[in-house]
Amino acid sequence: MDAKATVSVLFPKSSAVPYHEVTVLEVAKTIIDMKLTPKTEPLLLTVQGQKEQLYYNRYMFWLYAKGKISYADLLASCWCHGLYRNNAELVGPAAETVDAHSLWMLRHNTLLLVDDNRHVTQSSATIDALFYNVEKVP
């Protein structure tokens, strides 16, 4: 359920911006109205008290803001345990190269490359050696 809470929005190269006593829907509409570019749009939304983190997928948030999908659908698509970037270039199991500092979403024990054109995964066992959390970058 999309209840009122403090929602922190993490923008690239910036600290999180808190929105107090709002719903995720209200924050989604606010972000869409900002008309941000892909380089300036948020990376992650964190709903305080519910420990929900949502990767900001522009299309899914647009669908939610327009009433085309439910909050449950948004959660199913965007929910994560955090966002990470790889420290160096990686070579996947199928000899697929992933550029350094690419964005990954952690779900349960698997890191998923955030890329609409490819499906690349990495075990979270490699997280400390090969990745850094985007929330902890100064």
Rank of each mutant, 00 (worst) to 15 (best):
R85T: 05
L106H: 00
L25D: 07
L10D: 11
L106I: 02
R58N: 06
L106Y: 04
L106P: 06
T37A: 06
H101D: 06
R85P: 04
P18Y: 07
S14H: 08
K35Y: 06
V91Y: 03
L111S: 01
T23E: 07
H20Y: 09
S15F: 14
N86L: 04
H81G: 06
N87D: 10
A88F: 02
R85K: 15
G49V: 12
K29M: 08
L112M: 01
K39I: 12
L63R: 08
T23Q: 12
L43W: 15
V27R: 00
L74D: 03
L111K: 02
W62T: 11
A100N: 00
S77R: 13
H81V: 05
R85C: 01
A100V: 05
T46V: 13
P12V: 01
Y55E: 06
P18M: 10
A72I: 09
L111T: 03
L83K: 04
G49L: 06
L44S: 07
I32M: 13
L63G: 01
M105Y: 00
L75K: 10
C80N: 13
A65W: 10
F61Q: 06
T23F: 13
V17H: 05
V27N: 05
P38Y: 07
A95L: 15
A95M: 14
T97H: 11
L74V: 00
V47F: 03
K66E: 14
I32Y: 08
V91C: 02
S14T: 08
V98W: 07
L44A: 04
V98I: 15
V9A: 00
R107G: 11
I32F: 10
D116T: 12
A94D: 15
G82A: 11
D73A: 02
G67H: 07
E89N: 05
F61E: 11
D116N: 14
P93V: 09
W104M: 05
Y64E: 13
Y71K: 04
V22G: 00
E89I: 01
L45N: 06
W104Q: 04
N57S: 09
P18F: 08
D116H: 14
A88M: 03
V47L: 02
E41W: 08
M60L: 12
C80W: 07
L25E: 12
H81T: 08
K51L: 13
I69R: 01
V47T: 00
F61P: 05
G82T: 11
H81D: 15
K39P: 13
D115M: 02
K39S: 14
A16E: 15
Q53I: 09
E52F: 10
K66T: 08
L10R: 12
L75I: 01
Q50S: 14
E89W: 01
S14C: 08
Y55Q: 03
E26M: 14
I69E: 07
Q53K: 15
L45T: 00
A100C: 05
V98Y: 09
A65Y: 10
L106S: 05
Y19M: 02
L54E: 04
D33N: 15
C78A: 00
K68Y: 11
T37N: 06
P18Q: 09
T40A: 10
V114R: 11
A65F: 09
L25M: 13
Q48I: 00
S15T: 14
V27H: 01
N57V: 03
D99H: 09
K39R: 12
A65K: 11
R107A: 10
V24Q: 00
N87T: 09
M34H: 04
